Simulated scan of single mutants.
Amino acid sequence: MRFDSNSFGVVALAAYQPEWELFRTQLRSIQNQTHSRFQCLISADGGFAEVRDFVDRELGGDERFRVLGFEGRLGFYGNFERVLKHVPAEAAWIALSDQDDSWYPSKIEALLPHLNDVSLVAAQARVVRLPGNEVITESTLRKNVDLDALLAQNQVTGSLCVFRRDLLDLAMPFPRLNTISQVHDHWLAVCAKATGGALVVEDVVQDYVQHGGNVLGEVGGRKSIAKSFEHVRALSRKFQGSSSPLAILRTANDLSFGWRRVMADALRVRLSQGGSGQVVGISAFVTGHSWLSTARTLGLGLRRGEIALPCFVEFVAGIPIEIFEKNLVKHVNQATDSGNEF
Rank of each mutant, 00 (worst) to 15 (best):
A198Q: 11
I321Q: 08
Q182S: 07
R52S: 15
Q99T: 04
V127L: 04
G318W: 01
A14N: 06
E218I: 05
V280M: 08
S293T: 03
L168M: 07
G258W: 01
V201E: 03
Q39T: 07
F163M: 13
L41V: 11
Q39V: 10
F65E: 03
G78E: 06
M172F: 03
R52Y: 08
D45H: 07
V183W: 01
A252C: 13
V215R: 13
D62N: 13
R222W: 05
E306A: 13
R260E: 08
S228W: 03
E109M: 01
L271K: 05
F76H: 11
I136P: 01
A284K: 05
Y16S: 09
P131A: 09
A152L: 03
R126H: 04
F163E: 03
V145K: 02
Q210M: 12
C191S: 02
I136H: 00
S228N: 11
H289R: 15
I248S: 06
F54C: 02
G220C: 11
K238C: 03
G339W: 15
K238S: 04
D4M: 07
S293K: 14
L13C: 15
D100S: 14
R28N: 07
V55N: 02
A149S: 14
I30C: 10
P88H: 12
A198Y: 06
L235T: 00
S7K: 12
R66A: 10
F239H: 11
A14C: 06
E341N: 11
S242E: 04
L120E: 00
A92N: 04
G197C: 05
I323P: 09
V329T: 05
F324H: 05
A95N: 10
L302Q: 05
I321F: 08
G213L: 11
T25W: 12
G258N: 04
R2D: 00
S338I: 08
R250H: 09
L84W: 13
L170N: 02
N340I: 06
D207H: 14
Q155H: 14
V11L: 14
N214S: 11
F3Y: 15
K326F: 10
Q99F: 04
R233H: 00
I30F: 05
Q99H: 05
V55L: 07
A226Q: 03
A252S: 12
Q39M: 12
L267V: 08
R73L: 13
S290E: 00
T336Y: 12
S29C: 10
R66E: 11
M263A: 12
S338N: 10
N253H: 15
E202N: 14
F174G: 02
V269M: 03
Q155K: 08
R303E: 00
A171P: 01
D265I: 01
H289D: 06
A171W: 02
D185F: 06
V332L: 15
V286G: 04
D4Y: 08
D207C: 00
T140G: 04
L170P: 00
G196Q: 07
H35C: 03
Q240A: 13
L13Q: 11
S119G: 14
H114V: 00
V286M: 09
V190I: 15
L235Q: 15
R24G: 04
A14K: 06
S236Q: 10
P310D: 12
H186C: 05
V200S: 01
T25A: 12
S106R: 14
G339H: 09
L255H: 06
T297Y: 01
D207E: 11
S272T: 13
L170T: 07
L151W: 02
L300H: 08
G217S: 15
